[in-house]
Design a protein around this nucleic acid. Sequence first.
DNA 1: ACTGCTGATGTAACCGGTTACACTAATGCG
DNA 2: CGCATTAGTGTAACCGGTTACATCAGCAGT
Lengths: 347, 347
Amino acid sequence: MRGARRFCPTSADKGPMAEATIRDVAMRAQLSVATVSRALNGFENVSGEARARIAAAVKDLGYVPHAGARSLSLSRNNALGVVLPDLHGEFFSEFVRGMDREASRNGYLLLLSNFHGRGDQAANVLRAMRGRVDGLIVMAPHLAADELAASLPKGLPSVLINTREGPDHHPAIHLDNATGVRAVVDHLADLGRKRLVHIAGPAGNFDAQERAAAFRQAVAARKLIGKIVHGDFEVQSGEAAIATLLSQGTRFDAIFAANDNMAIGAMQALRDAGLTIPGDVAVAGFDDIPLARHLGLTTVRVRIAELGERAVARLLDSLSREERTGDERHEPELVTRSTTVADRNTK
Amino acid sequence: MRGARRFCPTSADKGPMAEATIRDVAMRAQLSVATVSRALNGFENVSGEARARIAAAVKDLGYVPHAGARSLSLSRNNALGVVLPDLHGEFFSEFVRGMDREASRNGYLLLLSNFHGRGDQAANVLRAMRGRVDGLIVMAPHLAADELAASLPKGLPSVLINTREGPDHHPAIHLDNATGVRAVVDHLADLGRKRLVHIAGPAGNFDAQERAAAFRQAVAARKLIGKIVHGDFEVQSGEAAIATLLSQGTRFDAIFAANDNMAIGAMQALRDAGLTIPGDVAVAGFDDIPLARHLGLTTVRVRIAELGERAVARLLDSLSREERTGDERHEPELVTRSTTVADRNTK
DNA sequence: ACTGCTGATGTAACCGGTTACACTAATGCG
DNA sequence: CGCATTAGTGTAACCGGTTACATCAGCAGT
């Protein structure tokens, strides 16, 4: 590959459609590349006349700077890598929206990638980012701490979201799952609910584990009857969980799903079974995806987009100053709506 | 910026923490950079012994190739630019998921960006992609054809999704809105519904316009009473539309929202008003976001993720062969569920 | 022994920007 | 008028890879 002919120092003739480079602009404006570069980057020490000639040449040639080349020489990419697990639904879009907002506000682009497989796959994905991005935002609630630590490129500043604490401390943002869970359980208990079922997330997931553990504790603290069934954060598994509970004849008067998706599935299944919400069963979720408000779902507000913004802001911060101190906590809050409180119309 | 000292040809001493380069590896393995490069890229003509020494050096130094430099010399980025309007909710996540799947299957990453503002902003966003990506996927249902054409970098292969036809034909994928709309209207008519209300999308949006126009035609063809009210593709606007209709005393027996989000809002508002679905009012949407299935919403299945995959596949195609022929159509299909057909349990 | 070939390796010119340093001309000042 | 300063510009060495071409050793064929 690499262009056609190699020994054409002045590049008087490029292929017919070759993209214009800064040297082409310099030639057309009868100036040196240095002056062109300075003019384009808004330096002061360029005469007005030179500026004008350059502007004309840029326009004539339809010149657009080559960001890759610029990155190489500046050692600065103006891009951030975002590596996420296989997120679904509104959580994903809200999170990305938040990151994009903060990133583009600061002139950065987002390079997106998913952990598709496990272990070594993760390392590859992260390696592929080296030399394209200035920093990394990693959400890996499914990876073990050491697995993740081994995969993270050493030279790249990284912000970790909701990952297990590793020995080497990267800056991280942790969602305070326990506080959110406690608020929900207290709320349900205050309403007089006695038999709570928690639909948990996938077994290997860090957030799911924290939420389930917090549920166990909170239920014990309030002397309630608690049961945990397993889901996978998808709507479908919320429906399935209810179906199982009903077929087993389990008694319960409140469902607390580990995320809103499963809560929505549960609501649907409960209604299909002829049960009323919150009359027969109160339902609560976690995340507060935008839809939750419209469905009247009581849930734990995570302010997902804000979480994304914070992650980016944090990363940009550690890019400028050398300061890369410890963890931050992201505090969620309870939002009560009509799936637990019938009268109140918080919608 | 640019590293500390400039005249240190052999780079015997870099800064303490500088990232290892291929030259460092070469030095440590007592070989030339050419051999190292060949070995790392899996060429055949490298002796087993050299290979071993290189592998050792790579490991010792924790060397990771610099993708940016590689891109520059290969004129190939292994990244695709994705520029979207301000999408919300599940449409966004499904679409991105589809693109990511196909991209990563082929070893490409996605560089994400939003049209935040209008006009010239769009041009800037697209320019910023030059030199970082090998091609562009652009969804701009809110831009005029010439506006978009003017902003697209000339040298970058681009695939357009649901944009107005420009004079210069880029490869494009068009969602067949009219077919989908007709299917819904026919379905509602077949069910005996007479007074249809279409909740349209934002005025400047191409898809919204096509759907509204198709609605008008289909309603006329079936000799129904049709009315169009305006929304903005958000859940909230679906709720608002119903509120307005009810307060005006408008009579209707079917709601057809221009997307699922608004349909969900409408369902919520109808239920809050004590109306039954589909008893009093049938409801249909457009998109078939994953949630629609769980809510039993009759809608037009767009196979959003597949649309994303197709876009990427199409783009990769036009990168390899020179072939970049005309448009493709993406055909949607009607999915009937319980918001229009009570008995049938398609859930 | 000489030529022709093959396989492994090295040298250095790229990719397209940025910028340290050198240089020239014009200006300021004693 | 002479010298220091400054404003504007040019040259070429980077950034970290890839690879065309040159080189050189080893071996087969005659």
